[in-house]
Design a protein around this nucleic acid. Sequence first.
DNA 1: TTGTATGCGTTATCAT
DNA 2: ATGATAACGCATACAA
Lengths: 350, 350
Amino acid sequence: LNIKRVTSQDVADAAGVSRTTVSLVLNNTPNVQISDETRQRVVTTARSLGYVPDAAARALVSRRAQIIGLVMARSHHHIASDAFLPQSLEGLLDVAHQYGMRLLIDIVEPQHQKEAYLQLVRAKHIDGLILSGPRLDDEALNLLDEESFPIVLIGRLPGDRFYSVDVDNRAAARTAVDHLVKQGHTQIACITNASPEYSAASERLAGYREALEAAGLNYDQGLVRYGDFSSRSGYQQMKQILLSGAEFSAVFAASDEVAYGVKAALVEQDLRPPDRVALVGFDDLPMSAYIDPPLTTVRVPATELARRAGNLLVQILEGELPDQKVQLLETHLILRHSCKTSRSIPSDIV
Amino acid sequence: LNIKRVTSQDVADAAGVSRTTVSLVLNNTPNVQISDETRQRVVTTARSLGYVPDAAARALVSRRAQIIGLVMARSHHHIASDAFLPQSLEGLLDVAHQYGMRLLIDIVEPQHQKEAYLQLVRAKHIDGLILSGPRLDDEALNLLDEESFPIVLIGRLPGDRFYSVDVDNRAAARTAVDHLVKQGHTQIACITNASPEYSAASERLAGYREALEAAGLNYDQGLVRYGDFSSRSGYQQMKQILLSGAEFSAVFAASDEVAYGVKAALVEQDLRPPDRVALVGFDDLPMSAYIDPPLTTVRVPATELARRAGNLLVQILEGELPDQKVQLLETHLILRHSCKTSRSIPSDIV
DNA sequence: TTGTATGCGTTATCAT
DNA sequence: ATGATAACGCATACAA
């Protein structure tokens, strides 16, 4: 391989100065007096040689890799259909670019959490960690916390010991279900977005229960099923409820992805929303406005969530420890056509 | 920060050996005779101390960062709704895990291609590059190629100078459109997946033309519009065709994402597929089986594409240069319900 | 079978 | 205002 490698020594030689001077100039080190003329010369020769400091060498000495780690706690199998991921990446890349950092990404399977991203940290590959979809049973997380390694959660964990950015899943779910209640539905099924180890899933389910209780409605075990992120699971779980013969007039699917599957199962039984069954989702994926019927759902500001998480992490890395541990972002119920309320054209299709 | 940092020296001390021995043992260096007893002792003390080699130090000396770079040539704006991305990540993470490598991800805006990922390479942040959605006008790409930096494209560029993994977009598009032709459609609209700088877009459009020509049908400029990845663009472009009053009985949307928007525009005009208009997509996103009607589309093995690309890159990194530059993977036309052919339940909903 | 010495490219601490 | 020099943590050729 004939990859040419330009070092600071090369620049120094070409500019007729020492390596130190090159470093001083290029890093704009403060409290150092270097003549403008020399400064210019160094900068231009560096550019003309195409010099870029070696990341490894710099990381080694500065103890900063300049890399943010994004770790997603999902089973490998489910990442492929995680429609949220692109939005998270967008937000995080935003922040990374802004601060001249890089983004390293990995997933950790629920089974072997322990070793997985611990290595990433121990190897000092990353300066800080953003953990998306934290689980209650994550041991490595607590270990890292004890060492006060910089961590920000996208999501939330009971106790709020971690810096986290999230939406109020419980309140949002309650609002969504309440919307169904107000339309007169008394038998509302619920397919969760994931298994209850995921805090978002249990919170959304709790919101569902609260809305029911507030309305004096029965919580019927037979109308509740657990999804696993995928449309497929939504389809399957809805199918089971249909097969069980349980009666219901509305469904709260705790993620849009799951809602798509739910709808497919309903359509298959000639129960196309919104006429005979109302359907509400959760997340507001970009395409939810374009499916048929457009999905009434809870908008989660996914990109902004990631952006906040990234900013929070950078802040922590720079030594400022915000006193507010948890940032909760607003959600909004987006009324479209999968419930009978509004029959006008959704305002967000343009 | 009280982050404890265990070095190979610590392990050496604790095990009563030298740093060299630690390195030799832990790296399983061949052609070195070390007593099993010593070997064991080193391994166990390393584990008990929680020793993980410093990535920067290792990279510096070994000249290998052990990091694969995934760069997506998309405008920042479009990444958030890139439903393909999760699948690509899944495949790439597969490979990365398999070879003990890490995955660094970045995007490069079509505007300022030049500097963007060049820095990533120059800083030796990454050992090799996987470029998704390469563009004809990418200067940095050629620069890197001249230095024979390891690159694999997901997608393809004219001339096939690069190692690439792709599907035969043109043939697949032809098959899809041919399917419409065979159903008797003579006026078929086309909304591309992206602007023609993206080779996939121009290839799919070419396939559309070829199918028309083969059937002796007119290529009508007025029935062709360019999308930009998003559902929104599909909606808007379809809307324009509808407004133009041009006649058509079928639409070939060159990506599922775009197809969703197309469908929304059709539904809005009471042209819900498949009854009055047939619709065919391209990509087969996971949820395309679950929308209503389930979308007839071309299945692109996205995860496998990424996996191949990753494997190819690793192979190159290990010094074997495959003589086959281009790997073309099979696509399949998935018949669902957005065209009038099959009226049975799609076989892939289970 | 194991230890010593050197270098990777950078930043930082000193002199000059 | 600039230049030597010493780390940073690891791998490796060479010694022992």
